[in-house]
């Protein structure tokens, strides 16, 4: 079973991330186990700046918080997943040639001139500006209730990016990209850096890469008894 992730450890993690520069990973440590072996408190982001990383950590902690049943986003290294995905070229498959018409009907799909990397860079900057304006401090220093209120405002576009000078990206679009990546990181195979120790799979009852159920397919309405296996062959 996975070790309990206490809220005090989580607080320490958030505080240390906010307060001090991230210590570089000792060479060789992540390589040995790939991204599955990363310890979040010692992880050095490869895409985000230290200030952006602080914001990302704090938002992930509200998107999938530690409280309640099931592991939280920090316990499962979701920020590592997002940082790695952005570094590895997430969005390189998007058709980005202009002209762009960002005000097209939503049913005609994504029409921004931005790759996800741009969306995060712009979104984090403007969200922090808006937060500073509204609360007088950066997002990571808000109480949990204010954090959730502010995230809801991003989700519902009551934070107005246009008023902050951004011509196309809406707060809700930044929010949607971020939330989608957070859920992906929580539920993807651990090899991508999130879902540490397959804790999210254990919590929901998904057996991962077992991928052979000839004997189980017609055992109707019986919970599957075995825990998950990862692509790297680990069990939980």
């Amino acid at each position: 079973m996975s070790s309990k992730f206490t809220s005090s450890r989580r607080t320490l993690l958030l505080a240390s991330a906010a307060a001090v520069p991230i210590v570089a990973l000792p060479l060789g440590q992540p390589k040995a186990e790939g991204l599955e072996g990363v310890t979040l408190s010692r992880y050095q982001p490869v895409f985000f700046s230290p200030a952006e990383w602080t914001f990302v950590m704090a938002v992930c902690d509200r998107f999938i918080p530690a409280e309640g049943r099931g592991p939280g986003a920090l316990e499962t290294n979701v920020p590592v997943f997002i940082d790695q995905q952005l570094h590895e070229g997430l969005g390189s498959d998007i058709y980005l040639q202009g002209p762009h018409k960002p005000d097209a009907p939503a049913t005609l799909g994504f029409q921004l001139p931005y790759a996800p990397q741009d969306t995060y860079r712009i979104g984090i900057k403007l969200a922090q500006q808006a937060c500073q304006k509204q609360f007088g401090k950066p997002f990571e220093q808000l109480g949990e209730k204010d954090k959730d209120t502010f995230l809801t405002a991003l989700q519902k576009n009551t934070v107005d990016f246009a008023a902050l000078g951004e011509p196309t990206l809406k707060a809700s679009q930044f929010f949607g990209q971020f939330l989608g990546d957070t859920k992906n990181g929580y539920l993807a195979d651990p090899k991508y850096g999130g879902n540490k120790d397959m804790k999210a799979w254990v919590a929901i009852g998904f057996p991962g890469a077992r991928a052979a159920y000839t004997e189980w397919v017609d055992q109707h309405n019986r919970p599957y008894p075995l825990g998950p296996v990862s692509l790297s062959g680990k069990r939980a």
């Binding site: 509200r62 998107f63 999938i64 049943r69 099931g70 959730d148 995230l151 989700q155 939330l179």
Partner: peptide, 8 residues
């Protein structure tokens, strides 16, 4: 869509 409610 997010938060404790989504997770649970």
């Amino acid at each position: 869509q997010w938060g404790k409610g989504w997770k649970e």
